[in-house]
Design a protein around this nucleic acid. Sequence first.
DNA 1: CTTCCATTAATGTATATACATAATTGAGTC
DNA 2: GACTCAATTATGTATATACATTAATGGAAG
Lengths: 234, 234
Amino acid sequence: MTESGAIHARIRRDIEARIMSGEWAPGTRIPYEHQLMATYGCSRMTVNRALRMLMEAGLIESRRRAGTFVSHPRVQRAALEIPDIRDEVAGQGESYRLDLDRREIRAASEEDKRLLQIDGGSVLALECRHHAGGRAYALERRLINLAAVPEAAEVDFAIEPPGSWLLSHVPWTEAEHRITAFNAGGKELVALGISAGAACMALERWTWRGEERITYARQVYPGDRYALVARFRP
Amino acid sequence: MTESGAIHARIRRDIEARIMSGEWAPGTRIPYEHQLMATYGCSRMTVNRALRMLMEAGLIESRRRAGTFVSHPRVQRAALEIPDIRDEVAGQGESYRLDLDRREIRAASEEDKRLLQIDGGSVLALECRHHAGGRAYALERRLINLAAVPEAAEVDFAIEPPGSWLLSHVPWTEAEHRITAFNAGGKELVALGISAGAACMALERWTWRGEERITYARQVYPGDRYALVARFRP
DNA sequence: CTTCCATTAATGTATATACATAATTGAGTC
DNA sequence: GACTCAATTATGTATATACATTAATGGAAG
Protein backbone atom coordinates (compact mmCIF):
# COMPACT_ATOMS: atom_id res chain seq x y z
CA MET A 1 0.00 0.00 0.00
CA THR A 2 1.71 3.17 1.18
CA GLU A 3 5.45 3.29 0.71
CA SER A 4 6.50 6.45 2.55
CA GLY A 5 8.20 6.68 5.90
CA ALA A 6 9.16 4.14 8.52
CA ILE A 7 8.10 0.50 8.39
CA HIS A 8 6.21 0.71 11.67
CA ALA A 9 4.27 3.70 10.33
CA ARG A 10 3.37 1.80 7.22
CA ILE A 11 2.14 -1.24 9.12
CA ARG A 12 0.14 1.03 11.33
CA ARG A 13 -1.48 2.84 8.42
CA ASP A 14 -2.33 -0.38 6.61
CA ILE A 15 -4.04 -1.91 9.63
CA GLU A 16 -5.84 1.29 10.47
CA ALA A 17 -7.13 1.54 6.90
CA ARG A 18 -8.43 -2.02 6.99
CA ILE A 19 -10.27 -1.32 10.23
CA MET A 20 -11.68 2.01 9.08
CA SER A 21 -12.91 0.59 5.80
CA GLY A 22 -14.80 -2.10 7.67
CA GLU A 23 -12.76 -4.88 6.06
CA TRP A 24 -11.67 -5.92 9.54
CA ALA A 25 -14.83 -5.51 11.64
CA PRO A 26 -14.82 -5.16 15.44
CA GLY A 27 -14.00 -8.52 17.02
CA THR A 28 -11.93 -9.74 14.07
CA ARG A 29 -8.58 -11.26 14.97
CA ILE A 30 -5.82 -9.51 13.09
CA PRO A 31 -2.81 -11.54 11.92
CA TYR A 32 -0.38 -12.76 14.58
CA GLU A 33 2.78 -10.75 15.01
CA HIS A 34 4.90 -13.46 13.38
CA GLN A 35 2.58 -13.42 10.36
CA LEU A 36 2.93 -9.65 10.04
CA MET A 37 6.72 -10.11 10.34
CA ALA A 38 6.57 -12.35 7.29
CA THR A 39 4.19 -10.07 5.40
CA TYR A 40 6.31 -6.98 5.87
CA GLY A 41 9.68 -8.71 6.02
CA CYS A 42 10.64 -7.03 9.27
CA SER A 43 11.40 -7.97 12.86
CA ARG A 44 8.85 -8.64 15.56
CA MET A 45 9.89 -5.54 17.49
CA THR A 46 8.87 -3.38 14.54
CA VAL A 47 5.51 -5.09 14.21
CA ASN A 48 5.01 -4.85 17.95
CA ARG A 49 5.73 -1.14 17.91
CA ALA A 50 3.06 -0.55 15.29
CA LEU A 51 0.53 -2.62 17.21
CA ARG A 52 1.32 -0.91 20.49
CA MET A 53 0.55 2.46 18.95
CA LEU A 54 -2.75 1.19 17.62
CA MET A 55 -3.52 -0.17 21.08
CA GLU A 56 -2.85 3.17 22.71
CA ALA A 57 -5.17 4.72 20.16
CA GLY A 58 -7.84 2.22 21.22
CA LEU A 59 -8.30 0.60 17.81
CA ILE A 60 -7.14 -2.85 18.82
CA GLU A 61 -6.80 -4.93 21.97
CA SER A 62 -4.71 -7.97 22.58
CA ARG A 63 -4.89 -10.97 24.82
CA ARG A 64 -1.86 -13.12 25.51
CA ARG A 65 -1.87 -16.42 23.78
CA ALA A 66 -5.14 -15.59 21.96
CA GLY A 67 -3.95 -12.84 19.63
CA THR A 68 -4.86 -9.26 18.79
CA PHE A 69 -8.40 -8.14 17.96
CA VAL A 70 -10.17 -5.13 16.51
CA SER A 71 -11.80 -3.25 19.41
CA HIS A 72 -15.51 -2.79 19.74
CA PRO A 73 -15.89 0.97 19.67
CA ARG A 74 -17.21 2.27 22.96
CA VAL A 75 -17.66 5.72 24.29
CA GLN A 76 -16.94 8.53 21.95
CA ARG A 77 -14.16 10.77 23.00
CA ALA A 78 -14.05 14.33 21.87
CA ALA A 79 -11.10 16.63 22.09
CA LEU A 80 -12.71 19.54 23.85
CA GLU A 81 -10.38 22.46 24.07
CA ILE A 82 -10.33 24.27 27.35
CA PRO A 83 -11.36 27.64 26.13
CA ASP A 84 -9.09 30.51 26.93
CA ILE A 85 -11.74 33.17 26.46
CA ARG A 86 -9.30 35.88 25.48
CA ASP A 87 -7.81 33.78 22.68
CA GLU A 88 -11.23 32.64 21.62
CA VAL A 89 -12.45 36.20 21.18
CA ALA A 90 -9.24 37.28 19.46
CA GLY A 91 -9.56 34.30 17.12
CA GLN A 92 -12.93 35.60 15.98
CA GLY A 93 -11.32 38.90 15.05
CA GLU A 94 -13.09 40.80 17.83
CA SER A 95 -11.50 43.11 20.36
CA TYR A 96 -11.32 41.72 23.87
CA ARG A 97 -11.97 43.53 27.11
CA LEU A 98 -12.07 42.32 30.68
CA ASP A 99 -14.01 43.91 33.54
CA LEU A 100 -13.00 42.74 36.99
CA ASP A 101 -16.05 43.37 39.19
CA ARG A 102 -14.82 41.79 42.36
CA ARG A 103 -11.61 40.54 43.88
CA GLU A 104 -11.48 39.25 47.42
CA ILE A 105 -9.14 37.17 49.50
CA ARG A 106 -11.13 35.53 52.26
CA ALA A 107 -11.24 32.60 54.61
CA ALA A 108 -13.05 29.79 52.82
CA SER A 109 -16.82 29.95 53.24
CA GLU A 110 -18.94 26.82 53.43
CA GLU A 111 -19.64 27.01 49.71
CA ASP A 112 -15.97 27.58 48.91
CA LYS A 113 -15.07 24.54 50.98
CA ARG A 114 -17.56 22.42 49.12
CA LEU A 115 -16.52 23.57 45.67
CA LEU A 116 -12.78 23.27 46.31
CA GLN A 117 -13.01 20.29 48.67
CA ILE A 118 -10.91 21.96 51.33
CA ASP A 119 -11.30 22.10 55.08
CA GLY A 120 -10.22 25.66 55.57
CA GLY A 121 -7.50 28.03 54.45
CA SER A 122 -8.01 31.08 52.28
CA VAL A 123 -9.32 31.48 48.79
CA LEU A 124 -9.14 34.14 46.12
CA ALA A 125 -12.63 34.88 44.80
CA LEU A 126 -13.06 36.71 41.52
CA GLU A 127 -16.01 37.90 39.48
CA CYS A 128 -15.46 39.26 36.02
CA ARG A 129 -17.07 39.90 32.65
CA HIS A 130 -15.50 39.14 29.30
CA HIS A 131 -16.42 41.44 26.42
CA ALA A 132 -16.06 40.85 22.70
CA GLY A 133 -16.32 43.85 20.38
CA GLY A 134 -17.91 45.91 23.13
CA ARG A 135 -20.65 43.36 23.87
CA ALA A 136 -20.83 41.16 26.94
CA TYR A 137 -19.56 37.71 25.98
CA ALA A 138 -19.39 35.78 29.21
CA LEU A 139 -19.73 36.12 32.95
CA GLU A 140 -17.20 34.37 35.13
CA ARG A 141 -17.04 33.51 38.79
CA ARG A 142 -13.85 31.91 39.98
CA LEU A 143 -12.34 30.52 43.15
CA ILE A 144 -8.63 29.84 43.48
CA ASN A 145 -7.27 27.71 46.29
CA LEU A 146 -4.47 29.83 47.70
CA ALA A 147 -2.99 26.88 49.54
CA ALA A 148 -2.30 25.32 46.11
CA VAL A 149 -1.42 28.48 44.19
CA PRO A 150 -0.19 31.13 46.65
CA GLU A 151 1.35 33.25 43.89
CA ALA A 152 -2.14 33.95 42.50
CA ALA A 153 -2.64 36.44 45.34
CA GLU A 154 -0.08 38.76 43.72
CA VAL A 155 -1.41 38.68 40.16
CA ASP A 156 -3.36 41.61 38.72
CA PHE A 157 -6.33 39.87 37.15
CA ALA A 158 -7.66 43.12 35.74
CA ILE A 159 -4.94 42.79 33.09
CA GLU A 160 -4.67 39.07 32.53
CA PRO A 161 -7.85 36.96 32.61
CA PRO A 162 -7.65 34.40 35.44
CA GLY A 163 -8.18 31.47 33.04
CA SER A 164 -5.30 32.57 30.81
CA TRP A 165 -2.97 33.08 33.74
CA LEU A 166 -3.78 29.75 35.37
CA LEU A 167 -3.52 27.82 32.09
CA SER A 168 -0.03 29.08 31.40
CA HIS A 169 1.35 29.13 34.95
CA VAL A 170 -0.13 26.19 36.81
CA PRO A 171 0.30 22.62 35.65
CA TRP A 172 -2.74 20.44 36.29
CA THR A 173 -3.35 16.73 36.22
CA GLU A 174 -7.08 16.41 35.98
CA ALA A 175 -10.16 18.48 35.34
CA GLU A 176 -13.89 18.10 35.15
CA HIS A 177 -16.38 20.04 33.09
CA ARG A 178 -20.08 20.32 33.66
CA ILE A 179 -22.22 21.94 31.01
CA THR A 180 -25.81 22.94 31.71
CA ALA A 181 -28.56 25.11 30.27
CA PHE A 182 -30.71 27.36 32.46
CA ASN A 183 -32.99 30.36 32.31
CA ALA A 184 -31.29 33.65 33.11
CA GLY A 185 -32.20 35.18 36.46
CA GLY A 186 -31.44 38.42 38.26
CA LYS A 187 -27.66 38.36 38.23
CA GLU A 188 -27.14 37.64 34.57
CA LEU A 189 -29.68 40.10 33.20
CA VAL A 190 -27.69 43.27 33.71
CA ALA A 191 -24.24 41.76 33.40
CA LEU A 192 -24.89 40.10 30.06
CA GLY A 193 -27.51 42.52 28.81
CA ILE A 194 -30.15 39.89 28.13
CA SER A 195 -33.83 39.63 28.94
CA ALA A 196 -35.37 37.65 31.80
CA GLY A 197 -35.76 33.96 31.12
CA ALA A 198 -33.37 33.89 28.15
CA ALA A 199 -31.56 30.56 27.84
CA CYS A 200 -27.94 30.61 29.01
CA MET A 201 -25.21 28.03 28.98
CA ALA A 202 -23.17 27.45 32.11
CA LEU A 203 -19.75 25.84 31.92
CA GLU A 204 -18.36 24.78 35.28
CA ARG A 205 -14.84 23.50 35.65
CA TRP A 206 -12.92 21.97 38.52
CA THR A 207 -9.17 21.56 38.15
CA TRP A 208 -6.91 19.30 40.16
CA ARG A 209 -3.19 18.90 40.66
CA GLY A 210 -2.79 15.46 42.10
CA GLU A 211 -5.24 15.21 44.98
CA GLU A 212 -5.53 18.94 45.50
CA ARG A 213 -8.13 21.13 43.84
CA ILE A 214 -6.60 24.22 42.31
CA THR A 215 -9.55 26.19 41.06
CA TYR A 216 -13.27 26.26 40.38
CA ALA A 217 -14.74 28.35 37.59
CA ARG A 218 -18.28 28.95 36.44
CA GLN A 219 -18.71 30.73 33.13
CA VAL A 220 -22.10 31.82 31.85
CA TYR A 221 -22.72 32.52 28.17
CA PRO A 222 -25.85 33.91 26.53
CA GLY A 223 -27.43 31.01 24.66
CA ASP A 224 -28.23 32.96 21.53
CA ARG A 225 -24.66 34.14 21.05
CA TYR A 226 -22.51 31.22 21.98
CA ALA A 227 -21.88 27.63 20.88
CA LEU A 228 -19.33 25.28 22.34
CA VAL A 229 -17.69 23.40 19.48
CA ALA A 230 -15.48 20.33 19.71
CA ARG A 231 -13.95 18.62 16.71
CA PHE A 232 -12.11 15.37 17.13
CA ARG A 233 -10.95 12.00 15.89
CA PRO A 234 -11.36 8.69 17.68
CA MET B 1 10.59 6.58 43.10
CA THR B 2 7.82 4.16 42.23
CA GLU B 3 8.86 0.55 41.99
CA SER B 4 5.88 -1.18 40.42
CA GLY B 5 5.54 -2.41 36.87
CA ALA B 6 7.75 -2.18 33.83
CA ILE B 7 10.93 -0.10 33.67
CA HIS B 8 9.65 2.04 30.80
CA ALA B 9 6.50 2.82 32.80
CA ARG B 10 8.58 3.85 35.77
CA ILE B 11 10.79 6.15 33.72
CA ARG B 12 7.72 7.64 32.18
CA ARG B 13 6.04 8.26 35.53
CA ASP B 14 9.15 9.80 37.03
CA ILE B 15 9.61 12.25 34.18
CA GLU B 16 5.94 13.08 34.08
CA ALA B 17 5.96 13.78 37.81
CA ARG B 18 8.93 16.11 37.49
CA ILE B 19 7.20 18.03 34.71
CA MET B 20 3.87 18.19 36.52
CA SER B 21 5.42 19.39 39.74
CA GLY B 22 7.11 22.22 37.89
CA GLU B 23 10.59 20.96 38.75
CA TRP B 24 11.28 20.67 35.02
CA ALA B 25 9.65 23.78 33.55
CA PRO B 26 8.69 24.14 29.88
CA GLY B 27 11.80 24.55 27.76
CA THR B 28 14.05 22.62 30.16
CA ARG B 29 16.27 20.03 28.53
CA ILE B 30 15.70 16.68 30.13
CA PRO B 31 18.67 14.30 30.53
CA TYR B 32 20.06 12.68 27.37
CA GLU B 33 18.97 9.14 26.66
CA HIS B 34 22.40 7.77 27.58
CA GLN B 35 22.23 9.57 30.93
CA LEU B 36 18.81 8.06 31.65
CA MET B 37 20.25 4.66 30.67
CA ALA B 38 22.85 5.09 33.38
CA THR B 39 20.33 6.44 35.92
CA TYR B 40 17.92 3.55 35.49
CA GLY B 41 20.47 0.91 34.58
CA CYS B 42 18.61 -0.11 31.46
CA SER B 43 19.10 -0.11 27.70
CA ARG B 44 18.58 2.83 25.40
CA MET B 45 15.62 1.13 23.71
CA THR B 46 13.79 1.11 27.03
CA VAL B 47 14.51 4.76 27.72
CA ASN B 48 13.53 5.59 24.17
CA ARG B 49 10.23 3.81 24.54
CA ALA B 50 9.35 5.83 27.64
CA LEU B 51 10.28 9.08 25.92
CA ARG B 52 8.34 8.20 22.80
CA MET B 53 5.19 7.73 24.86
CA LEU B 54 5.69 11.09 26.55
CA MET B 55 6.19 12.63 23.13
CA GLU B 56 2.93 11.20 21.86
CA ALA B 57 1.25 12.60 24.94
CA GLY B 58 2.67 16.01 24.03
CA LEU B 59 4.65 16.50 27.22
CA ILE B 60 8.08 16.59 25.60
CA GLU B 61 9.60 17.27 22.21
CA SER B 62 12.96 16.29 20.88
CA ARG B 63 15.40 17.63 18.34
CA ARG B 64 18.16 15.48 16.93
CA ARG B 65 21.57 16.30 18.19
CA ALA B 66 20.18 18.92 20.58
CA GLY B 67 18.28 16.70 23.00
CA THR B 68 14.78 16.39 24.44
CA PHE B 69 12.88 19.28 25.97
CA VAL B 70 9.78 19.86 28.07
CA SER B 71 7.04 21.20 25.78
CA HIS B 72 5.54 24.62 26.21
CA PRO B 73 1.90 23.96 27.03
CA ARG B 74 -0.29 24.79 24.06
CA VAL B 75 -3.95 24.68 23.55
CA GLN B 76 -5.22 22.57 26.35
CA ARG B 77 -7.23 19.72 25.03
CA ALA B 78 -9.41 17.41 26.96
CA ALA B 79 -11.05 14.16 26.17
CA LEU B 80 -14.77 14.78 26.44
CA GLU B 81 -16.60 11.51 26.53
CA ILE B 82 -20.06 11.61 25.10
CA PRO B 83 -21.67 8.31 25.93
CA ASP B 84 -24.40 6.40 24.25
CA ILE B 85 -27.74 7.59 25.68
CA ARG B 86 -29.01 4.10 26.40
CA ASP B 87 -25.85 3.24 28.36
CA GLU B 88 -25.96 6.58 30.11
CA VAL B 89 -29.51 6.00 31.35
CA ALA B 90 -28.74 2.43 32.32
CA GLY B 91 -25.66 3.63 34.17
CA GLN B 92 -27.87 5.85 36.32
CA GLY B 93 -29.92 2.83 37.29
CA GLU B 94 -32.99 3.99 35.40
CA SER B 95 -35.03 1.97 32.94
CA TYR B 96 -34.60 3.01 29.33
CA ARG B 97 -37.32 3.28 26.71
CA LEU B 98 -37.20 4.49 23.12
CA ASP B 99 -40.12 5.95 21.16
CA LEU B 100 -39.60 6.13 17.42
CA ASP B 101 -41.93 8.89 16.22
CA ARG B 102 -40.90 9.00 12.62
CA ARG B 103 -38.91 6.99 10.14
CA GLU B 104 -38.64 8.00 6.53
CA ILE B 105 -36.41 7.19 3.59
CA ARG B 106 -36.45 10.09 1.19
CA ALA B 107 -34.50 11.84 -1.51
CA ALA B 108 -32.28 14.40 0.21
CA SER B 109 -34.02 17.74 0.78
CA GLU B 110 -32.14 21.03 0.62
CA GLU B 111 -31.65 20.97 4.39
CA ASP B 112 -30.48 17.34 4.31
CA LYS B 113 -27.96 18.22 1.62
CA ARG B 114 -26.62 21.07 3.67
CA LEU B 115 -26.35 19.08 6.90
CA LEU B 116 -24.78 16.02 5.28
CA GLN B 117 -22.83 17.91 2.60
CA ILE B 118 -24.15 15.75 -0.20
CA ASP B 119 -25.37 16.62 -3.68
CA GLY B 120 -28.23 14.17 -3.84
CA GLY B 121 -28.98 10.56 -3.03
CA SER B 122 -31.31 9.31 -0.36
CA VAL B 123 -31.28 9.74 3.39
CA LEU B 124 -32.86 7.98 6.32
CA ALA B 125 -34.56 10.52 8.60
CA LEU B 126 -35.49 9.56 12.14
CA GLU B 127 -37.18 11.31 15.03
CA CYS B 128 -37.25 9.67 18.40
CA ARG B 129 -37.56 10.27 22.13
CA HIS B 130 -35.38 8.71 24.80
CA HIS B 131 -37.05 8.02 28.15
CA ALA B 132 -35.44 7.39 31.51
CA GLY B 133 -37.57 5.91 34.26
CA GLY B 134 -40.75 6.81 32.37
CA ARG B 135 -39.80 10.48 31.96
CA ALA B 136 -38.71 12.12 28.72
CA TYR B 137 -34.93 12.38 28.76
CA ALA B 138 -33.99 13.58 25.32
CA LEU B 139 -35.39 14.32 21.91
CA GLU B 140 -33.40 13.22 18.90
CA ARG B 141 -33.54 14.05 15.22
CA ARG B 142 -31.17 12.13 13.00
CA LEU B 143 -30.18 11.94 9.37
CA ILE B 144 -28.21 9.01 7.99
CA ASN B 145 -26.51 9.21 4.61
CA LEU B 146 -27.64 6.00 2.91
CA ALA B 147 -24.92 6.28 0.28
CA ALA B 148 -22.40 5.84 3.12
CA VAL B 149 -24.34 3.35 5.25
CA PRO B 150 -26.82 1.48 3.01
CA GLU B 151 -27.39 -1.25 5.61
CA ALA B 152 -29.01 1.31 7.94
CA ALA B 153 -32.14 1.10 5.77
CA GLU B 154 -32.77 -2.44 7.06
CA VAL B 155 -32.30 -1.79 10.78
CA ASP B 156 -35.26 -1.59 13.15
CA PHE B 157 -34.48 1.55 15.11
CA ALA B 158 -37.51 1.07 17.34
CA ILE B 159 -35.46 -1.60 19.12
CA GLU B 160 -31.92 -0.29 18.97
CA PRO B 161 -31.35 3.46 19.34
CA PRO B 162 -29.75 4.87 16.18
CA GLY B 163 -26.76 6.25 18.08
CA SER B 164 -26.03 2.87 19.67
CA TRP B 165 -26.33 1.04 16.37
CA LEU B 166 -24.13 3.46 14.48
CA LEU B 167 -21.50 3.53 17.22
CA SER B 168 -21.10 -0.21 17.18
CA HIS B 169 -21.48 -0.85 13.47
CA VAL B 170 -19.95 2.03 11.59
CA PRO B 171 -16.33 3.07 11.99
CA TRP B 172 -15.77 6.81 11.77
CA THR B 173 -12.73 8.97 11.40
CA GLU B 174 -13.84 12.37 12.54
CA ALA B 175 -16.70 14.09 14.27
CA GLU B 176 -17.77 17.53 15.36
CA HIS B 177 -19.94 18.51 18.27
CA ARG B 178 -21.77 21.74 18.79
CA ILE B 179 -23.41 22.50 22.11
CA THR B 180 -25.89 25.35 22.47
CA ALA B 181 -28.56 26.57 24.88
CA PHE B 182 -31.95 27.81 23.67
CA ASN B 183 -35.48 28.48 24.87
CA ALA B 184 -37.92 25.66 24.21
CA GLY B 185 -40.45 26.27 21.45
CA GLY B 186 -43.46 24.41 20.09
CA LYS B 187 -41.88 21.10 19.18
CA GLU B 188 -40.12 20.43 22.44
CA LEU B 189 -42.97 21.36 24.77
CA VAL B 190 -45.07 18.28 24.30
CA ALA B 191 -42.29 15.85 23.47
CA LEU B 192 -40.24 16.65 26.56
CA GLY B 193 -43.11 17.68 28.80
CA ILE B 194 -41.68 21.08 29.67
CA SER B 195 -43.14 24.58 29.76
CA ALA B 196 -42.74 27.27 27.11
CA GLY B 197 -39.44 29.12 27.24
CA ALA B 198 -37.70 26.58 29.48
CA ALA B 199 -33.98 26.44 28.82
CA CYS B 200 -32.85 23.41 26.81
CA MET B 201 -29.47 22.13 25.74
CA ALA B 202 -28.93 21.08 22.15
CA LEU B 203 -26.09 18.76 21.21
CA GLU B 204 -25.48 18.52 17.49
CA ARG B 205 -23.05 16.03 16.03
CA TRP B 206 -21.69 15.48 12.55
CA THR B 207 -19.75 12.33 11.85
CA TRP B 208 -17.37 11.63 8.98
CA ARG B 209 -15.69 8.61 7.49
CA GLY B 210 -12.85 9.98 5.45
CA GLU B 211 -14.32 12.72 3.28
CA GLU B 212 -17.87 11.41 3.47
CA ARG B 213 -20.40 12.48 6.07
CA ILE B 214 -22.14 9.53 7.65
CA THR B 215 -24.72 11.06 9.94
CA TYR B 216 -26.07 14.18 11.55
CA ALA B 217 -27.78 14.13 14.93
CA ARG B 218 -29.40 16.78 17.05
CA GLN B 219 -30.28 15.85 20.60
CA VAL B 220 -32.28 18.16 22.84
CA TYR B 221 -32.22 17.83 26.63
CA PRO B 222 -34.30 19.70 29.18
CA GLY B 223 -31.91 22.09 30.90
CA ASP B 224 -33.21 21.47 34.39
CA ARG B 225 -32.73 17.72 34.19
CA TYR B 226 -29.52 17.26 32.29
CA ALA B 227 -25.85 18.12 32.64
CA LEU B 228 -23.12 17.12 30.24
CA VAL B 229 -20.13 16.07 32.30
CA ALA B 230 -16.62 15.51 31.02
CA ARG B 231 -13.72 14.40 33.16
CA PHE B 232 -10.27 14.23 31.70
CA ARG B 233 -6.55 14.52 31.98
CA PRO B 234 -4.26 16.62 29.78
C1' DC C 1 34.36 38.75 10.86
C1' DT C 2 31.95 35.79 7.87
C1' DT C 3 31.32 31.69 5.14
C1' DC C 4 31.95 26.96 4.34
C1' DC C 5 32.58 22.27 5.60
C1' DA C 6 33.91 18.22 8.07
C1' DT C 7 33.29 16.43 12.63
C1' DT C 8 30.55 14.92 16.20
C1' DA C 9 26.93 13.92 19.22
C1' DA C 10 22.32 13.43 19.84
C1' DT C 11 17.86 11.16 18.42
C1' DG C 12 15.31 7.79 14.99
C1' DT C 13 14.71 3.33 13.30
C1' DA C 14 15.46 -1.50 12.85
C1' DT C 15 17.31 -6.18 14.02
C1' DA C 16 18.14 -10.65 16.42
C1' DT C 17 17.71 -12.56 20.64
C1' DA C 18 16.05 -13.79 25.23
C1' DC C 19 13.15 -14.65 28.84
C1' DA C 20 8.59 -13.53 31.31
C1' DT C 21 3.67 -13.94 31.47
C1' DA C 22 -0.82 -15.35 30.66
C1' DA C 23 -4.28 -18.12 28.67
C1' DT C 24 -5.79 -21.66 25.54
C1' DT C 25 -5.32 -26.38 24.43
C1' DG C 26 -5.35 -31.01 25.09
C1' DA C 27 -4.00 -35.12 27.38
C1' DG C 28 -4.71 -37.71 31.35
C1' DT C 29 -7.42 -38.83 35.46
C1' DC C 30 -11.39 -39.41 38.40
C1' DG D 1 -18.77 -35.90 31.36
C1' DA D 2 -16.12 -33.04 34.58
C1' DC D 3 -11.91 -31.89 36.57
C1' DT D 4 -6.67 -31.29 36.85
C1' DC D 5 -2.50 -29.98 35.20
C1' DA D 6 1.26 -29.64 32.11
C1' DA D 7 2.53 -28.28 27.39
C1' DT D 8 2.07 -24.89 24.06
C1' DT D 9 1.89 -20.44 22.04
C1' DA D 10 1.12 -15.54 21.39
C1' DT D 11 1.99 -11.36 23.46
C1' DG D 12 4.96 -8.27 26.88
C1' DT D 13 9.28 -6.56 28.09
C1' DA D 14 14.12 -5.90 27.84
C1' DT D 15 18.87 -6.12 25.81
C1' DA D 16 22.94 -5.25 22.83
C1' DT D 17 23.95 -3.76 18.50
C1' DA D 18 23.91 -1.26 14.13
C1' DC D 19 23.31 2.21 10.99
C1' DA D 20 20.62 6.48 9.43
C1' DT D 21 19.54 11.23 10.07
C1' DT D 22 19.86 15.70 11.71
C1' DA D 23 21.84 19.74 13.47
C1' DA D 24 25.07 21.96 16.73
C1' DT D 25 29.99 22.74 16.85
C1' DG D 26 34.35 24.27 15.81
C1' DG D 27 38.09 24.88 12.73
C1' DA D 28 39.83 26.37 8.11
C1' DA D 29 39.57 29.47 4.31
C1' DG D 30 38.25 33.75 2.36
